[in-house]
């Protein structure tokens, strides 16, 4: 085997490993939930933010009815808006996923607000989040905790 193909082989292996480490996804009905991540907080923090995306491969729209996680008393959809220079955070209405479309959460937009955290969120920690969809039903997805100021899944 040439030196190049060894390197290529090693690179492919690394890629495969990275892909599997990131392949935290869950499926329920026609929905695919992926890239669920959260930001690390201080140990005494009461609130935290979680982000994920939901793809709808089916012909009908669906929406999130509720969310639950053992790390916090409440998990609810929030929306951050910036109006002029003022940042405002409020409860988001029911989050829906259009047929063939996706629901994407990211910092500064839609997020899942965790309230009354039990003991903060640690970098590297993983916790389960259970989402109940109106049509597809319940699904549990593992959420990975990244850096306190992370802007996406790591």
């Amino acid at each position: 085997m040439s030196k190049h193909s060894v390197i290529a082989g090693a690179a492919a292996l690394v890629l495969a490993f990275v892909a599997s480490a990131h392949a935290e996804m869950a499926k329920v009905g026609d929905l695919v939930i992926e890239q669920a991540w959260a930001r690390a907080t201080t140990p005494s923090a009461k609130t935290g933010a979680t982000y994920l995306s939901v793809r709808n491969t089916g012909p009908e729209s669906d929406s999130i009815l509720s969310m639950e996680t053992p790390v916090a008393s409440h998990a609810m959809a929030h929306q951050t808006r910036q109006e002029n220079d003022v940042s405002r955070m409020s409860e988001a209405g029911p989050l829906s996923v259009p047929p063939g479309g996706a629901l994407e959460m990211k910092p500064g937009g839609t997020h899942i607000m965790l309230m009354d955290l039990g003991g903060g969120l640690r970098l590297g920690q993983q916790f389960p989040l259970t989402i109940t969809f109106e049509k597809a039903g319940k699904v549990e997805i593992p959420v990975k905790v990244g850096k306190p100021g992370a802007m996406g899944p790591e």
Binding site: T41, T47, M89, G108, M113, G149, M151
Partner: peptide
Amino acid sequence: FTHCPDVCPTSLSYVA
């Protein structure tokens, strides 16, 4: 404020 998990961490990590 510290109960702000979405916008404030973004600003503070930008400062960092």
